[in-house]
Structures are given as structure tokens and as C-alpha cells.
Nucleic acid binder design. Structure first.
Length: 847
RNA sequence: GCCCUCGUGGUGAAAUUGGUAGACACAAAGGACUUAAAAUCCUUGCCGCUUGCGGAGUGCCAGUUCGAGUCUGGCCGAGGGCACCA
């Protein structure tokens, strides 16, 4: 038998698809559209297994939808701005542009080898001025809508990357890329007013039925809406301080208040700047790191002022006012009232400074209630609270207290969000220039649209500190209306680039504007977006914001949610290896002896095998897709990467698994040849429909599994159909039955193994009668069986399975059971007390 | 601390509305073919007794039910997200 030459065949089909522009897409209003998008890659140089998995999942769906006669848009591009290019340039003295372009060209070749059904005519690259000029225009539009502003702000400063990080890019107090401990610095920064849409972004989640709940929950928590009220506290003071406002979610615990605490950045702090003790305290606070550990062990510290705050519910109660290290200026109002009995932080603080601890909430019907080392935050009823006593906590206590405060002008109902505005300035060269210039007095002005794009200058010398653009004096100059200005040298956060690229794909050829409205209104929203869960908050929330920002007040464009469906795939993992000196080793440096023992390739030492972890260069546990594709072929790789685990979970790379997928393609090829021989034999027409049942069941199963993203089960279906056909090969099935059903089987396989299927379909030689291939329509009637497996249970235990005609009734079934010695043996002569009978399925007899 | 998700063989995993637990695959052991190896194919899979059969069994403990991997409550464990958020 001829072996399957994947190199030749895959190459043949990839060339054909490219030549025929098989995957190019254009608007066709007679067809339903399907926009299938995978998160575009950063062009690091080579594709990795994560890309293979991501793009294979997307490709299966795109090809499936195409077969179902959808008009499919399946584009690809490059998220090509960002720090690695700049770092590489610094190290190797080449331009980020050249480095990036070379990487793109390599990775494009590799992606093409996977046989993806991508419309490459729509390819975009965010570092091209053809792309970012539109982004600069959007920036100006958002500026005009009041969604861009500049303010001096404390920022997360990464001392290694010498740049500002968004809050989301700070993980455990460290820079997400450099891992350096982040410092607090005050800088002038540009912001997108994402908080304007806090409510919309939160409520919009409810409509996203096609998103995983996990991601929706994460975004919900990130936006962090809380319901409470603002309370005005009158202050007794020798200074010009009359009132301090606090935000609280628990106004009902007001009678338990024993102090008021302010952030050291609170406006009132200015009255204490001259006090050296305050300065010392403030410094102490800034030393407390932001890491998880340091916060956990951080002691509650306070600086006592002479101020007294008056309890608004009882003017005779006066409590001291502190500055405290645990109060944050950028949440709420930077001031809180302390209720030690019902807040752990307040309790810790009160114990340290010996403040009064008055419980005001107790469990219902409990009389001897005391607070020791743990604050009570559960439900209950109010006590020690004068006119509020007895109210049910929290259902009655909170609204009734707010009512009282509002009626007496002491406070007002207020919702609050954790979400903060998006700081978009980066002190970096390799990013989109911000279309802003400054006059001599450093006032910002917009750069007019006709001067766009503001292109990045070519830079070869990266031996300067900080942002290279700062040193480009010629570039910085710009003439607007005859006057000289200095350009902004900060560039945009690369998350801005990826916040609208899905719109650009719809109109990638449009040079006048970022997109055409008619294109957007046809293609958007993205029907299925596929990518890593690591973007659950940042990228997805920013993209949602961008849609709100662009569509606001825009009558031509009213799509608020960019991604109708979202699928987050798991990572590709591999065992890790270390030598005796604890150096990481890559899988090719290892040999496996007898399946258990691992040795270094030169057999000089034994290797320590570590747990399977997500593939990463630092742990050297990567497998190079290019090498694997060359060795096994794209179809086999696609088959394997889907086979072992459900796509939302992590998958283990296994050489044995890869090898068995490869062999399976070979086996399918052998089967294909055998089938062609059977067809050639031209058997007379046969009434048995075994093949049709197998094909129909297969198509039905695969279709369900594609639609549910159960891609691992699709591969199981492939193995099943293979062995089922093998069993009926010699059934003397006639030519037409073979062709009709085998063609359908091949079409059903084609989304996963497109090269193999195309080749086999061609060899079936049915092209003359079939112009275009569509997903087979199944006739489910074939699956209706005349016999069914009846489960016979006694006392809930399965004692036998009877293959019987469908539609049999209880009495007939019991007669059959009595004929079955084995089952009868379990009943013996006991009386049957009860029978549960489920037609065509099961009988349970209780004895 | 709060929120979310998940616990099924040696391993990755299947199991419509509660109805034959372990599909499909990997590994291992045994067998067939072969002078031999590779490749291929078959069998086994936890505990008993010779085949066959019987028993236990989906993290643990209860409950609902004729029947629970699936539903309810409690506990234990793993992973992820958020975090002095007032």
C-alpha cells in the first residue's frame, strides 16, 4: 500500500488555496455572516504550541461554518508594537522595525504550514503607520468627546523597564514583564475615561450569553460596583476644617464608630505638611510595599490629629480623627469612619490605639454578644443604636439608615466603582505616538488630523536612558498654524492597539478612516473570539470600552459589545527536566530509557523530572511547532493538539500521543485506498444500510461536538468511525452508497484534517457532479433502531441487558426476563414488590 | 480574608433531561504473527474465586430517589481571580 506523503499533499493544497484565494471574504448580504477571530499574536519570532492550539481551534470552527454556508471572515494580523522589539534592538543594535518585520515574515510562513483558512488579504500590523494613523485619529475623536484627559497622578513606575504600568500590569507589586518591584511616582499622564462607562460595562456583561461565566465574574469583580452612601461628618477643629466626607457600605454601623481615618494623600493633609511628625508618618506609609505579603503582615498605623468628628446620628458623640496607612486615596473619598466591632481592619487599629469597641450588630436572639479578636460581619440585628435598634441587618438596617441620613441632610446614597481610568502613556519608543503637542508654556494641543500620521522616527541608537524619543530634538519639533510646538514623546499603551484591531479587519483596505461603517455593520460583532484566559480582564475590557467610546453619539454605528462569543482555551503543558545541578533542560537534551528512567543524551547522568507546566522558554520545556509539523505533517499536529483534553483545559504535550495521531492519519490513508478498491469492484445494489448509519451517526456526533466546543470528542468520533468502517469493509456495499456516504464522512473530517480530506475527496472523483462542498444534511430517520438494549435492574442493580424490539410493553418485557436464566436467577422465587418501567430503556424491579 | 471553578482507573479523559460508569486515547502487562526485532492485531485493567461470575467503586460523610458521577447539605483537597476597596 502507498504511504501517505503528507509533505507533498499538504504543500499541494496550501498552494492551491493560496492561488484560488479560497479564504478571501467579501460582503454578501444574501448570506449569514460569521466572524471568527483568534487573538492575534505578538511577533516574537516563532510560533509556539499555544498558537498552534489557539489557531487550530479557530480554524476548525471557521471551516465548519464555511461548510454550513456561512459567509466567514477569518483574518489574522500582528500585535507588533511593544517592548520585546525595543529590547532586542538594544541588544543587537538593529531597528525594532526590521526585527519585527523579519519575525512577522517567519511566523507567517509557519502559520501557513498549519493550513489555516485565513484571509491573508486582510492582514494588518499594528506597528505600521497604515494602522496607527487611524488610531491617532480615534485618539483625537475621543479627546473631543471628553474621553481623554491629562492629569498628574501617582503612577506605577517600573524601574527596570523605565516605564509606567497600568494597575492591571502590576502583579503582586511587581512589573508584569520585568518582575521589578514597582515604585510610586508622580507624573503627567494621559488617561482614557473608562469609568464613564462603568455601569454600561457592568450591565453589558448580562447580555454576553456566549461568554464563560468565569470571565464575566472576573470583569464584574474588577469593575467592583458597591452600594453605600456618603456621610458628612462635622468636624471640631482649630483649623479651617468644617467637614469630612466618608464613603461607606455600612452606614448602619454608625453608632459603633470610634474614630475617623484619612488617607495621607487626603486634601486635609495639607494642613499638616509643616508638622515633621506627620512627614515622618507619611514616609513610613509609603515604605509599606504593595506586595501581598507585606500587606498581610503590615501593621495598622495611625497619626492622631487634634480634630474631632461628630457622629451625625448623635451629636453628643465625638471621636478622634487619624491619618491611617490602610486608607487609600484612590478609592471612595479617601476617608472612612472606623467601626472596630464590625470591620477587621478597624478592630486591629482600635486595639493598637486603645479605642472604644462598641458592637452594634448581633446575631438575632443572642443576648450575651461580645467582640474579642474577630470583627462580626455576619447578618443579625442592630442594638446599642438608639432609634435604629432591632432593625434586621442588612436588609432593613442599611436602607433605613440611608433614608434617615438623606432626610436630615447628613449624607446621600452613593454607588462606587473599583474600576479606575485607564492610564495610556508609556515612556517607550516602540509604540503609537500620541497626536498631541505642547506650546512654550507646556499646554497640550491636539495635532490636527491633516498632519497625521505622526510617524515614529527611525532609530538605531538605543544607548540612551529612558525613552529614546526624548532625545530626538528634530523629530519633536512640529509647526501647527505657523507656530512651533513640541510633540508628546510618550507613546500609547499597546493595549490601545489591540482594542480595535477587530474593527480594522473588517475594512483593512480603507485608507480614509479606521473602518467603513457598512463593513462594520455587516461583519461585527465577532461571533466567536478565541484566545487565552490571561486576557480575561485587560484586553477584553479595554476592547469593550473602545466600542462604547467610538459608538457614543454616533448614529452610523451602534454595536456596543465587540465579542458575541468568547472561548478561552487552556495552555499547552510539558514535563520539566533538570540536571543534577538544577539547570533546566529541554526535551531534546533528554533520552528516555525503558519508559521510566530519563538520562542526559550523552548518558552521563540521570535527569530529575519535574511537574508538567505550561511551555515556556525559561523552563526550556517547549516543543517547536515547526519541527513537529515537518516531522508529522500539519493534519497530524492539528489532530493531536485537539485530541487529548477539552480545549478549555490545559493539555499535556506527549510525544507518544503525537506519534499515534500521525499513525492514525496513515491508517486513514490505508483505509481510503481499501475503500477506493471496494468502489472499483462495483458491487450490485445492496439494501443493508450499515454504512449510512455509521456516516449519519458520525456527522451528527461531530456537528454536536463542534457546536459545543467538545473538540476532544470529535477526535474520538474519528477513531470510532475508522473502526466502524473497517468492520464493514467486506460487506459488498455498492458503489453509489460508498461514494455518497464516504464523501460525507470526508467532508465531516475536513475541518480538522483539511489537506488529507481534500486529497481523498479529489481521489473519490466526484467533483464533476459536486460543484461546491457543503456540510452534509443528515437524515436522522436512519438512526431510528428497530431494536434496543433494555437494561434490567433488580433493586437498582443492573443484572442484565436484553436486546429487544422497540415499543415492547411491561408485560412482554417481564415474559422475556423470565426466559433469561441469568436474570431469573437473581429473582429466584421472591415476590416483586414494585416495578419501574421506562419504555425502550430500563426496567427496575424491587424485590 | 472574599469570589469563581474543579475532584471519575497508572495517565489524559467520556457519560442527553438522574437510568449499563470508564467511550476514545496514552502507558503498562500478557498473548498472536515473526528465526528475531520493528510494525501490526487481540486480551487484561480495583478486589475475590480456575473460565464464568460475584463484590466494591466517581475526594470524604450524610440526605433526596425505585435508581446519584449527575440533585441537596456539611467536610476535605486542588487550581484560578481579587484584595488594607471602607
Amino acid at each position: 500500500m502507498e504511504r501517505y506523503n503528507f509533505k507533498e499533499i499538504e504543500n499541494k493544497w496550501q498552494k492551491k488555496w493560496e492561488k484560488d484565494k479560497t479564504f478571501s471574504s467579501k460582503i454578501d448580504k444574501n448570506k449569514k455572516k460569521f466572524y471568527c477571530l483568534e487573538m492575534f499574536p505578538y511577533p516574537s519570532g516563532k510560533i509556539h504550541m499555544g498558537h498552534v492550539r489557539n489557531y487550530t481551534i479557530g480554524d476548525v470552527l471557521a471551516r465548519f461554518k464555511t461548510l454550513q454556508n456561512y459567509n466567514v471572515l477569518h483574518p489574522m494580523g500582528w500585535d507588533s508594537f511593544g517592548m520585546p522589539a525595543e529590547n532586542a534592538a538594544r541588544q543587537n543594535e538593529l531597528s525594532p522595525k526590521d526585527w519585527t518585520e523579519e519575525n512577522i515574515s517567519n511566523m507567517k510562513t509557519q502559520l501557513k504550514q498549519l493550513g489555516l483558512s485565513i484571509d491573508w488579504d486582510r492582514e494588518i500590523s499594528t506597528c505600521s503607520s497604515d494602522y496607527y494613523k487611524h488610531q491617532q485619529e480615534f485618539f483625537l475623536e475621543l479627546y473631543d468627546k471628553g474621553l481623554v484627559y491629562r492629569k498628574e497622578n501617582y503612577v506605577n513606575w517600573d524601574p527596570v523597564d523605565k516605564t509606567v504600568l497600568a494597575n492591571e500590569q502590576v502583579i503582586d507589586g511587581k512589573g508584569w514583564r520585568s518582575g521589578a518591584i514597582v515604585e510610586r511616582r508622580k507624573l503627567n499622564q494621559w488617561f482614557f475615561k473608562i469609568t464613564k462607562f462603568s455601569n454600561e460595562l457592568l450591565n453589558g456583561l448580562n447580555e454576553l450569553d456566549g461568554w464563560p461565566n468565569k470571565v464575566k465574574t472576573m470583569q464584574k469583580n474588577w469593575i467592583g460596583k458597591s452600594y453605600g452612601c456618603e456621610i458628612n461628618f462635622k468636624i471640631e477643629s482649630t483649623k479651617e476644617i468644617n467637614e469630612i466626607k466618608c464613603y461607606t457600605t455600612r452606614p448602619d454601623t454608625l453608632f459603633g464608630m470610634s474614630f475617623l481615618a484619612l488617607s495621607v494623600d487626603h486634601p486635609i493633609a495639607k494642613f499638616y505638611y509643616s508638622d515633621p511628625n506627620f512627614q515622618k508618618f507619611k514616609e513610613e506609609c509609603s515604605k509599606t510595599g504593595t506586595t501581598e505579603e507585606s500587606l498581610a503582615i503590615a501593621e495598622k498605623l495611625g497619626f492622631k490629629t487634634e480634630l474631632l468628628a461628630i457622629n451625625p446620628l448623635d451629636k453628643s458623640i465625638k471621636v478622634p480623627v487619624y491619618f491611617a496607612n490602610f486608607v487609600l486615596m484612590d478609592y471612595g473619598l479617601g476617608a472612612v469612619f472606623g467601626c472596630p466591632a464590625h470591620d477587621q481592619r478597624d478592630l486591629d487599629f482600635a486595639k493598637k490605639y486603645d479605642l472604644k469597641i462598641t458592637p452594634v450588630v448581633k446575631p438575632i436572639n443572642e443576648d450575651n454578644f461580645i467582640i474579642e479578636n474577630k470583627a462580626y460581619t455576619e447578618d443579625g440585628e442592630l442594638f446599642n443604636s438608639k432609634f435604629l435598634n432591632g432593625l434586621k441587618v442588612p436588609s432593613d438596617s442599611i436602607p433605613k439608615t440611608i433614608d434617615y441620613l438623606e432626610k436630615n441632610n447628613l449624607g446621600k446614597k452613593q454607588t462606587n466603582f473599583r474600576l479606575k481610568d485607564w492610564g495610556i502613556s508609556r515612556q517607550r519608543y516602540w509604540g503609537c505616538p500620541i497626536p498631541i503637542a505642547y506650546d512654550k508654556k507646556n499646554n497640550p494641543v491636539k495635532i490636527p488630523k491633516d498632519l497625521l500620521p505622526i510617524k515614529l522616527p527611525e532609530i538605531k541608537n538605543f544607548n540612551t536612558s529612558g525613552n529614546p524619543l526624548d532625545h530626538m530634538n528634530d523629530w519633536k519639533k512640529i509647526i501647527i498654524d505657523g507656530k512651533e510646538y513640541t510633540k508628546e514623546t510618550d507613546t500609547l499603551d499597546t493595549f490601545v492597539d489591540s482594542s480595535w484591531y477587530f474593527l480594522r479587519f473588517c475594512s483593512s483596505d480603507n485608507s480614509n478612516y479606521g473602518f467603513r461603517y457598512e463593513d462594520i455593520n455587516y461583519w461585527m460583532p465577532v461571533d466567536q473570539y478565541i484566545g487565552g484566559v490571561e486576557h480575561a480582564i485587560l484586553h477584553l475590557l479595554y476592547s469593550r470600552f473602545f466600542m462604547h467610546a467610538l459608538s457614543e453619539d454616533n448614529r452610523k454605528f451602534n454595536i456596543k459589545e465587540p465579542f458575541k462569543g468568547l472561548f478561552t482555551q487552556g495552555m499547552v503543558c510539558h514535563e520539566t527536566y533538570k540536571d543534577q545541578n538544577n539547570n533546566w533542560l529541554s526535551p531534546d537534551e533528554i533520552i528516555n530509557v525503558n519508559g521510566k528512567k530519563f538520562l542526559l543524551k550523552d548518558r552521563t547522568q540521570e535527569i530529575k523530572v519535574g511537574p508538567s507546566e505550561s511551555m515556556s522558554k525559561s523552563k526550556k520545556n517547549t516543543i517547536d511547532p515547526e519541527k513537529i509539523i515537518n516531522e508529522y505533517g500539519a493534519d497530524a499536529v492539528r489532530l493531536f493538539i485537539l485530541s487529548d483534553s477539552p480545549p478549555e483545559k490545559d493539555v499535556q504535550w506527549s510525544d507518544e500521543g503525537m506519534n499515534s495521531s500521525f499513525k492514525f492519519v496513515q491508517k486513514l490513508w490505508i483505509l481510503n485506498q481499501k475503500i477506493l478498491e471496494e468502489i472499483k469492484k462495483d458491487h450490485p445494489k445492496n439494501i443493508k444500510n450499515d454504512l449510512e448509519i455509521i456516516a449519519t451517526q458520525f456527522i451528527e456526533n461531530v456537528q454536536n461536538n463542534v457546536e459545543n466546543f467538545s473538540y476532544n470528542k470529535i477526535i474520538a468520533n474519528f477513531y470510532e468511525v475508522y473502526s466502524a468502517i473497517n468492520k464493514i469493509l467486506n460487506f459488498k456495499i455498492d458503489k453509489n452508497t460508498w461514494i455518497k456516504n464516504y464523501l460525507n464522512i470526508l467532508i465531516t473530517m475536513s475541518p480538522v484534517i483539511p489537506h488529507f480530506s481534500s486529497e481523498c475527496i479529489e481521489k473519490l472523483d466526484v467533483n464533476k457532479s459536486v460543484n461546491k462542498i457543503y456540510w452534509p444534511k443528515v437524515n436522522k430517520d436512519v438512526l431510528i433502531k428497530d431494536k434496543v438494549n433494555f437494561v434490567v435492574q433488580i433493586n437498582g442493580k443492573t443484572r442484565g441487558v436484553l436486546n429487544l424490539k422497540t415499543g415492547i410493553n411491561e408485560k412482554e418485557l417481564i415474559n422475556k426476563i423470565n426466559e433469561d436464566k441469568k436474570i431469573k436467577n437473581h429473582i429466584k422465587d421472591k415476590t416483586i414488590k414494585k416495578i419501574i418501567f421506562i419504555p425502550d430503556k430500563l426496567i427496575n424491579m424491587i424485590i
